[in-house]
Design a protein around this nucleic acid. Structure first.
Lengths: 356, 356
DNA sequence: GGCAAAAAGATAGACGTCAATCATTGTTTG
DNA sequence: CAAACAATGATTGACGTCTATCTTTTTGCC
């Protein structure tokens, strides 16, 4: 079992070229005849040569430099992302991985594109960014990749961007899952689901909503969807509009919140007379967790940001190590009930739990 | 930002000792005075020295050698584990990680202990094993660890064993989760849940069962548990006993299968007249996946073996790299509905962006 | 055939650690 | 006091790759 791995010298010998030429090929330094390239590549194939990353990293005194671009603002989910990254930092430093978190104004494509362009100046190995659809963002991503920087989209993809991968859930799937849960919880009886989104135009929320409706429509049960509330992802607005709607529509049997601002939703439920409606919402954060633990809500659909970040890091590292093609880690929406909550979920250090 | 990492030479200088002595300390070669050890350790602390794993691995020509000990037999879940390991193999080889899978007779503590003892002879960096409770297994684990081999338990822990960690779910939590799901699906109405286990004495199944009962008992609803079926984890037995029981007890509204042999359960459901009972079972394998997709069952509680293996590998690697304390990756039971099934090779994603 | 450019070869130091050897201290002990 | 021993110092050659420099050979072209 101890057959030793071939080195680049072995490859060179096999290809009948000098070490220098073999090196020029694998490091793409140019100035090599097509014929020699082919012979080197063939030798690599034949010997099953794999570049020794440890040796390469040593010679280069490499530390991996990865940047995460996260939207700013009061959104608890992004605070959670930041918190996870902060905790991962010390651990990663020991593996010579340096992580920088860049904050950009949420939903501001101009700021995002500017940030990416600025980062192109630094010598960076990879970037994971929460996407915003925009042509300039696409261009900035293309420019980065042309420089050899690995680029992943995280949580939200960028339409039309040529990135190395997307790490996040499929929002239509998430919505369908919510739909199935709602059907299950109605147990064949009739019902009326009240959907809440941030704004109707946000395509992630729209996809979730559409997914849920699909499932309700496809079933034979009499569960229907009520008109949508737009909560702007702001807890005060969610609270006010939800309170009003519940008062005027007593037929509501369930609530599906596809967006943020759920602190407001929780406040409404807290003083609502029993029986409360079935409630499904997204993202496990401080207040949704608490609401689940106290039985105010039924299900939280989470995208496991810890896993997403881990997956993104693994992927960025693989690309940096030239272990292509990097395996794109599939993320599936995860369901949390009161009983299967993970033990260690960070409480955001900054905050005012009321403020989502 | 570019302050370079201190090397062991820097540490030695700071401690006022020679490189050789510092080396003797960090590699525990012995023959060093207590006073010198303390000074070296202090210097490491002060400088924030972190051993350069890349250099170390190069110098040692290291390839990580990890062994997974998996029970043999027809159980689809363990076959799935094996399949995941097989796929991971090629990918890991490029990172100089060598994986060996050892198969041992299921539930045979003697065979497991013998296998572990045999492995102690090979020079191995780490072992992940599916546990069976037994004193000899505990001893074998202790012996391995005394030799410097990292030992993790996977999926099933070993009572009383001093292992480096357990990667798997808490079965009580899984059972409680099932209970909550069943309550949710009954939507406040009365019901009668039929539990199926392998054998009553298997403590993982017993824990799941107890967890489920806890939740039913704690609720105010009129959902009760029927007497348990013992299916021996064999599909023929499950099928026969389940068919008999359903025939004699028309009050059954739901089934919770805590063990294996669910292919038999699926066969019963396939020709059962509507409305079928609510069904919750464990582990996403070929037949449970298909049953979910065709709407024969409602929920699969999975422990995400891919994540468990990934977590185990990360953990073993961290210990091998002496990056202690290795972070124990928490695994939480995951719920799959028809809609949020992970993609497989045979079921490609819907609406995948056209990149790469 | 001569000349420049392109391609290839040759070589060497560095990266930080490991593992080994040998020499040099200082301390204990008979 | 000498011998034995423990602790320490000093040094060296790997390990495989990167990077740079310099030389030699081949190729293309007029």
């Amino acid at each position: 079992m101890d057959r030793l791995q071939p080195t680049l010298s072995d490859v060179a010998r096999r290809a009948g070229v000098s070490y220098a030429t073999a090196d020029r090929v694998i490091n793409e330094r140019g100035g090599v005849a097509e014929k020699s390239m082919r012979r080197v590549r063939a030798a690599i194939e034949e010997l099953g040569y794999v570049r020794n990353v440890a040796a390469a990293n040593l010679a280069q005194k490499r530390t991996y430099r990865f940047v995460f671009v996260i939207p700013e603002g009061p959104n608890s989910f992004f605070q959670r992302l930041r918190s996870i990254l902060g905790e991962a930092r010390a651990r990663l430093a020991k593996a010579r991985v340096d992580i920088v978190v860049e904050n950009v104004e949420a939903f501001d494509a101009t700021a995002l594109a500017r940030c990416l362009t600025r980062l192109a100046g630094d010598r960076i190995d990879g970037i994971a960014l929460v996407g915003t659809d925009d042509a300039r963002v696409c261009d900035a991503i293309a420019a980065l990749r042309a420089q050899g920087v690995a680029v992943l989209t995280l949580v939200a993809d960028v339409q039309g961007a040529e990135r190395d991968g997307y790490v996040g859930i499929d929002n239509t799937v998430a919505g369908r899952t919510a739909g199935r849960l709602l059907l299950l919880a109605h147990g064949g009886r009739a019902g009326r689901v009240l959907p809440i989104v941030g704004v109707r135009t946000a395509h992630d929320h729209a996809e979730r909503l559409a997914g849920m409706r699909q499932i309700l429509a496809a079933s034979e049960s009499a569960v229907t969807a009520a008109p949508v509330i737009e909560g702007r992802d702001l807890h005060e607005i969610v609270e006010a509009r939800l309170r009003a709607r519940l008062a005027e529509d007593p037929e509501i049997t369930a609530i599906y919140s596809a967006g943020a601002g759920n602190a407001g939703l929780v406040r409404v439920l807290r003083d609502w007379p029993a029986p409360r409606p079935i409630v499904v919402l997204h993202e496990l954060v401080a207040h949704s967790r608490e609401a689940l633990e106290t039985g105010l809500i039924d299900v939280v659909i989470d995208q496991r940001p810890e896993d997403e970040i881990q997956g993104a890091l693994d992927c960025l590292r693989a690309i940096a190590d030239r272990h292509e093609p990097a395996p794109p880690p599939p993320v599936v929406p995860t369901l949390y009930l009161r009983e299967n909550l993970p033990q260690t979920v960070d409480s955001p250090p900054t905050g005012d739990p009321d403020h989502e």
